[in-house]
Structure formats: C-alpha cells, structure tokens
Design a binder for these strands. Structure first.
Lengths: 186, 186
DNA sequence: TGACAAGCGGGATGAGCGTCCCGGATATTA
DNA sequence: TAATATCCGGGACGCTCATCCCGCTTGTCA
C-alpha cells in the first residue's frame, strides 16, 4: 500500500472515531470525509460501505473491553469482576455515543461484527454473570439479556452530558437490585 | 368539516397509531397512507407535518397514563403508587414501540408536546417519586432522570418480543435497587 | 337535482444520504 | 528523471422520504 494511502486511511479512521464518539453512528460519511480533510471517494475506497467503517471503529473499542473482562476475571472474585466490568462498560458507553448505540444494536450488529473478528462479547459477558451468580453475588433469576437491558438504561442516563456522579448513582441502584436475593427482596 | 374528511382523518389516525405501535416512529408517511387506504395528500392535509401526526398519536397514549398516575396517587400509599406506575409505564412502552421511542426522546420531544397540550408528564412522575421518597419507600439519593433512565432500560429489554416474564424480572431488579437504602446497601 | 365548495389521489419536487466512477495527480521504482 | 501503477477529489447517480400541488371527484345544501 502506498504511504499516502496509509496516511489517509488513518486520518479517516481517526475522524470517524471522533465523530461517532461525539455524535453517534448517524454522522454522514461526507461529514467524516470533510473532517478528515479528504474526499468522499477516499473514504469509500478504504471502507467500501459505511458498515465497514463501523466495524473498524467499533471493533477497536471492543478489543480493550474484552481485555478488561479477562483481566478482571483473573484478578478479582466473581462478584467484583462482574460489577466492575458492568461499571466499566457503562463508563465507556457514556464517553462514546457511537459505542453506546452499537451496544444497543441501533442500526449495527456489534456482537455479530465482533464475533466475526474473533471476539465473543456475548460469551464473555455471560461468563462473568454466570460466575457471579454461582458465587452468590448476583441473584440467580436474571439472564444476560436482562443485565444488558439494565446496562442500556445506565447508558441512557448519560445521553449527551458527562455527569459521572449521576452515572454512579444509577449503576449503584442497578447493582443493589442485582445483589438482592429474590427471597429476601419481598 | 365534511363527513368523509372526518372519516378519513380517523382512518389515518388509526393506521398511524397501529403502525407506530408495531414498527416505531420511523414508519414512512406514505406507508401509513397506504395502510389507511388514502393518498399521501390526504394525510398531509389533516396532519401537515409528520410531527403533528406524532403529537396526535402519542398524546392519545399519554392521557391515560396521566389518569393512571392520578388514580394511583389517590388510592395507594406513596411507595406502591410509584412502583405500580413505574411498572405500568414499562408495560405500556413494551406494548407500543412508538411510545417507547417517544419516551426515550428519539426524534420527538414527547414531554414538550404533552406539556403544550396541558399534560405535565415530568411533573406528574416527579411528584410520584418525591412522595415515595418522603415515605421512605425509595432511596433518597436518586433523581427523576435516574428513574427515567432505568425505565428506558426496562423498555429496552422488550425490543420486539413480548415476554412479560422477562419484563417483570427486570422491573423487579430495578425495584429492589430503588428500595435499597444507600447505607444498608454497602 | 344542480352548483359549488371541500376534499381526494398520487405524481412532482427537493433535500439528505450512501455509493460509484473517472480525469487528473502523485508516490514509487528502475 | 521517466514510466507506471496507485490513489485522490468531488461530482454523478440512485434511493428514500417528507411535503406540496393540481386536476378531478364527491358531499352538501339550496
């Protein structure tokens, strides 16, 4: 690949990354080209479809998340690993609107794309949950889809403003709810 | 207004209501016209913009919600009123995708539109929360925005499938989390 | 029943967007 | 430096969709 092509590809990736993070996945391709200082043709050549841009940007965000999950699994007990990962996902999603939309499956199948690249986000998260439940740290009557839904709720709180205190409040409520044992909760 | 005009207006409203409930607010106006069995011009005349259609349909959903809130306030203690209304909102949103999107503020300012029509959804919900907190049924360290975010999370669980058991599970988790006292939760 | 205002259908219009294409420019290699 | 494969810019194209408009139809009332 020619050196200038490599440079331009990088510029596009960076502009797309920033644009998606700030405004979400709805940013027009032409706007990304403008911010990257290249023509729309250049974007199209490096990323033939908008979805391929999504993949490149979102996957670069998913990789560290998986790493974080693995590291937490190795160094914390099951309950702490689960809740810290939960909070970390919310933090990341709050900082990056595009990532939050991808989590929510709004117009892009993140898990499918990640799986194609060898990252099984679903399985990773499911394992964290199962281990936490076996350790008695999370009530046994919730499944992974429930947890994801609660995560989206926490993310929604951050629509736009970055208010870490509010984020913590909502995460705390969810954590207390997930910890409660069904029998003792009534 | 001519009788046939009145009939057509009704047909459009009903078709739009069903379409928004089933597929969300993104349904094209032309599709609504087709399902109503009228031309697009007829839709445009009765509802000059798509947003005016949103208003008409969504407001017809908001009114019973407000009624429900008032009735619960009158007949239940503060905590039950709050939690029953919360569950009811989630149920309604799960049955009606358009309503859920409007709650989430996706492309349409429901609260603003409702306020224009004399329904202060925000104030109604806030009062329920405040009373529940004063009664000690809800932890004092959450605000109305937190609660809304958690509600959106519960709604997200229902994206598409109607699985009331899952809905209950998530609502239960949130309820237990909201009940927990901050001091005893640690 | 006849005249006319009110209403109807659906094509026209224009905006926004993703994707494709090509004439010109540029990096690379000998 | 000359030749060539590669890459660039940005306009063209096709699509979707909301909104507007006009020639024709139909309900209404004297």
């Amino acid at each position: 690949m020619r050196a200038d092509a490599q440079r331009n590809r990088e510029k596009v990736l960076q502009a797309a990354s920033a644009a998606f993070a700030a405004e979400g996945l709805g940013v027009p391709v032409q706007e990304i080209a403008r911010r990257a200082g290249v023509g729309t043709g250049t974007v199209s050549r490096h990323f033939p479809t908008k979805e391929s841009l999504f993949e490149a940007v979102v996957l670069s965000r998913v990789e560290p998340l998986i790493d974080r999950a693995r590291s937490l699994t190795a160094t914390r007990d099951a309950g702490d690993a689960f809740f810290e990962f939960f909070a970390h996902m919310v933090d990341q999603g709050a900082l990056d609107r595009g990532l939050a939309e991808a989590f929510a499956g709004a117009g892009f199948d993140m898990e499918g794309a990640a799986l194609k690249a060898g990252y099984d986000v679903g399985a990773t998260f499911r394992e964290l949950l199962t281990r936490a439940q076996q350790a008695g740290a999370v009530r046994p009557d919730v499944d992974i889809t429930d947890v994801k839904a609660l995560m989206f709720g926490c993310l929604t709180r951050e629509r736009g403003q970055a208010e870490p205190a509010a984020r913590d409040r909502v995460v705390t409520v969810v954590r207390d709810g997930l910890r409660a044992h069904p029998a003792q909760a009534i």
